[in-house]
Design a protein around this nucleic acid. Structure first.
Length: 863
DNA sequence: CTGGTCTGCAA
DNA sequence: TATTGCAGACCAG
């Protein structure tokens, strides 16, 4: 006997949604109902093994029940958006599975189910109806099994005619009569007042139907019950009608349609399940035996001859992964394992003991532009090759960087992770195995990523900015920043003495020795021994951060000493000792610029982080004196964008007032102050200017009145007033920021000037704090990200022009809005102009970009 | 020895 | 109850 499985989709999704904890994919789409639904479906398929499956949905349009009874299902809460957004996805899922979906205007899913169930049973099918709604029990019949979900969605209780009668002692049809009498709160079916489940069953068991009950009211005991039955006769009949599931919805050729089975669209199903991050479901639908198992034939190349055979025997496209011997020192990094594939093969070679001939092979391979290379996370490899005098040509695509452009929020872009993310396969094994197995996925990854990048409109961003930037950064990192070790040692001694003296003073004031660096011990001294007022607490105890100490400084002389001690030990450990440990054999520091870390598109810098060298306070700023040019005669040039983020904001918002200010090269903070405080430019005080500056900063970050108030030390109300006036003066900024939030809410992401995408799952959160964060991200990311786009363009252009013009000056550092170059003395003027030109003309905005260049003998002096 | 927490540096 | 990062010190497990 053929089996038909009918899904009461609305009911099941509701069940799953409320039974399972919230679950989202990486884009913030809720998936818990989908997950529960698909697992339930899998279980049913396993248990029943149906020949056909159909899914019924409710339509939004009112049904005949609503039309006849205005209050039908009234009082039902509106479906939360976290659930409703999952409906289209489930429909897509079912469609790809080949399941027929039925939803008909004017009928509920129940009616569709009833009709299909009865029709199919009549035609000799064994029918299974799965639902979370007990109403459907009235459909139970000889060949119709109604499966009701129990606790959650994993288990079901099954009823056919016999089991139903056995349990309830009425027939399934009589169950409608029961409902007519008792009503149904959730559907707002009234029934007869005073008649509950017990009485209803009792009456129907005795009289068989609502009609018969009503004809025999006289013989029923109980005065009140009689009265109610008498008074609500019509309501009882009507309720029965409402509770009756239709079994005669007009369906033309429904059975033929159901039997006309469609195939599962495996490729698209896979894609959808990967997108939903539902690997476990995917595995069940597409078992590995179903797919051609990826044949991974891993070959070890044991000498340079074998390497040569793979790399040089023909012109081809090569997929490359590698591992390096990590070291904090650039000079000590080398290639450990080199893995190459021409598509399906995987060949690796242990580079540690490779002879010189091996590097000749690599040189011939990498410098041949007809041998096309796709490299996963190429920069470290390029750096090592470049150091050995090998250029890299014919390099077309970096799968790590491309993956970052598609989703910048991943914690890393190792091959195994992005294979899971974009292909859905799990690569098992340690780092080494992931590499060797992963290389065979690079071809498919490349194809998918190229398509995605094109679809997202990021061709220019990848091919003209990020990809060329790999070479620019590799060069900067290999060049490094020269260090004045003498001065550094002097600083070290100076700080060491200062720390000792300060510590002694603190011990004297505390009248005991303790670890000043331990917030726990310091807290004990300050708040218990010295009994200072507790300002703030942390999870683990008293807060002793800078803000707290600032508030306490009048209360005890120890506070200023502690603050000073903090500053000086911070500078000493992080910058003096930290930098000292990273000076390479060439006397330079070679920081790494990571291209795939930040969510906004900025670079980040590690080992060491050269993007947070102190500048605000003199004591820390001194650190900059140790950064010197490569050669004695050279100079350092620092060129920085003035207010690039506000200019980007002016451009993207199109606010005429702000655009004007930049066009006239006004001091934007003073101008803002004059607007917000309504005074002429000349009367702007420095306090006003710094408040305005804080507002401008706040706008860029996505502001709240609370934080602004805290920042500039006014009340929340005043801060709120500043913002209001600000938006009055720059009206288009307000509308622009709002439009960013709207677009993020609608699409789930925002884009920068170059279409760099940042997915913002937070904005869909039902937690209002998280959602508020999402809104700030939506406002900040396009601004910060566009500024990042612009300086990246400038970096490539500066790098290429210096090379093209045969100049010996070199780009060595980027600090978000600033480029630092090592400049030959006789090139200074030329390079200063060149850099300014390239930075200012990196992109055409509605406002000019202003670049200020400063040079000096040390980084400290470039001011 | 690792990972969590607190702290503080930059744009 | 402001965005993006990196890193050192401490400390519990």
């Amino acid at each position: 006997m053929e089996k038909l499985l009918i899904l009461d989709s609305n009911s099941l999704l509701n069940r799953a949604f409320y039974a399972l904890p919230p679950l989202t994919n990486n884009e913030g789409l809720n998936t818990n109902a989908i997950y529960g639904f698909s697992n339930m479906l899998l279980k049913m398929q396993d248990d029943i093994n149906p020949d056909y499956i159909v899914a019924a949905f409710d339509k939004k349009a009112p049904t005949f029940r609503h039309k006849e009874y205005g209050d039908y299902k009234a009082g039902r809460k509106k479906m939360p958006p976290e659930l409703s957004e999952q409906f289209p996805v489930v429909k897509e899922f079912l469609k790809l599975l080949g399941v027929n979906i039925y939803e008909i205007e004017g009928f509920e899913a129940d009616d569709i189910i009833g009709t299909i169930a009865k029709t199919a049973a009549k035609e000799g099918m064994e029918v299974y109806v799965v639902t979370g709604d007990k109403d459907a029990l009235q459909l139970a019949d000889k060949n119709i099994n109604v499966l009701i979900t129990k606790k959650g969605v994993s288990e079901v209780a099954a009823y056919d005619y016999d089991t139903f009668v056995k349990e309830f002692e009425v027939t399934p049809t009589q169950f409608i009569d029961v409902k007519g009498l008792m009503g149904d709160k959730s559907d707002n079916i009234p029934g007869v007042p005073g008649v509950g489940e017990k009485t209803a069953f009792k009456l129907i068991k005795e009289y068989g139907s609502v009609e018969n009950v009503l004809m025999n009211i006289d013989s029923i005991s109980g005065k009140k019950l009689k009265e109610n039955l008498e008074n609500y006769k019509e309501q009882a009949i009507f309720s029965k009608k409402l509770a009756t599931i239709m079994v005669d919805v007009p369906f033309e050729g429904i059975m033929e349609e159901i039997k006309d089975k469609r195939e599962t669209d495996k490729d698209k199903l896979k894609e959808l399940l990967i997108k939903l991050n539902m690997k476990s479901v995917l595995n069940k639908y597409i078992s590995s035996s179903d797919e051609e198992e990826r044949v991974i034939d891993i070959t070890e190349l044991s000498n340079s001859e074998e390497l040569k055979r793979i790399l040089l025997s023909e012109d081809n496209k090569y997929y490359i992964a590698y591992d390096i011997n990590e070291s904090p020192l650039n000079s000590k990094r080398s290639i450990k394992t080199f893995v190459v594939s021409k598509g399906e093969d995987s060949n690796f070679i242990d580079m540690t003991n490779l002879d010189n001939h091996g590097f000749e092979v690599l040189k011939e391979f990498f410098e041949d532009e007809n041998k096309i290379k796709v490299i996963h996370d190429s920069k470290a490899l390029i750096k090592i090759l470049n150091k050995k005098g090998i250029e890299v040509k014919g390099f077309e695509f970096d799968t790590a960087i491309a993956s970052y452009l598609i989703d910048s929020a991943q914690s890393d872009y190792n091959i195994d992770r992005i294979v899971m993310l974009f292909i859905g396969d799990e690569i098992k094994g340690d780092k080494d195995e992931c590499l060797k197995k992963g290389v065979v996925y690079l071809k498919e990854l490349e194809e998918r990523l190229i398509k995605k990048i094109k679809d997202e409109g990021m061709d220019e961003l990848y091919y003209s900015v990020e990809h060329p930037l790999i070479y620019t950064l590799a060069s900067m990192e290999n060049i490094g920043f020269n260090i004045d070790e003498e001065t550094l040692k002097e600083l070290k001694d100076k700080f060491k003495k200062e720390i000792e003296v300060t510590a002694k003073e603190i011990y004297d004031l505390a009248e005991e020795e303790f670890n000043i660096g331990s917030p726990k011990q310091l807290g004990k001294i300050l708040f218990e021994k010295l009994d200072l007022p507790v300002i703030k607490k942390t999870k683990t105890g008293y807060s002793t951060n800078a803000d707290v100490l600032e508030k306490l400084r009048d209360k005890h002389p120890i506070i200023d000493k502690v603050t000073y001690y903090r500053q000086i030990t911070k500078i000493n450990s992080t910058y003096v000792e930290g930098l000292m440990a990273l000076i390479d054999e060439d006397g330079k520091i070679h920081s790494s610029f990571n291209q795939t870390v930040t969510t906004t598109g900025r670079l980040s810098s590690t080992e060491p982080n050269l993007q947070n060298i102190p500048i605000r306070y003199e004591m820390g700023r001194e650190i900059r004196k140790i950064f010197i040019p490569t050669n004695e005669d050279d100079l350092l040039l620092s060129s920085d964008y003035s207010q690039i983020e506000l200019r980007v904001l002016a451009d993207m918002s199109g606010d005429v007032n702000m655009i004007d200010a930049f066009k006239h090269h006004s001091d934007i903070h003073t101008k803002t102050a004059s607007e917000v405080f309504n005074v002429p430019i000349e009367e702007v005080t420095s306090t006003m200017r710094s408040s305005a500056k804080a507002v401008n900063f706040g706008i860029v970050y996505g502001i709240s009145d609370f934080s602004l108030a805290q920042d500039i030390g006014v009340t929340k109300k005043e801060a709120s007033e500043y913002m209001k006036v600000y938006f009055d003066r720059y009206p288009k900024i307000k509308t622009y920021l709002d439009s960013l939030i709207d677009s993020a809410k609608e699409n789930g992401y925002i884009k920068t000037i170059l279409n760099r995408k940042r997915i913002i799952p937070e904005i869909k959160s039902s937690n209002r704090i998280v959602k508020a964060l999402g809104e700030r991200l939506a406002m900040n990311a396009p601004i910060q990200g566009s500024a990042a786009d612009i300086i990246k363009i400038a970096m490539n252009n500066v790098y290429n022009r210096l090379k093209k013009e045969g100049l010996k000056s070199e780009l060595i550092l980027q600090v978000h809005d600033e480029l630092i170059l090592n400049v030959k003395k006789d090139e200074l003027e030329k390079v200063n102009i060149l850099v300014k030109e390239e930075m200012e003309n990196a992109i055409k905005l509605k406002v000019p970009l202003d670049v200020d260049g400063n040079y000096g003998k040390t980084w400290y002096d470039t001011k």
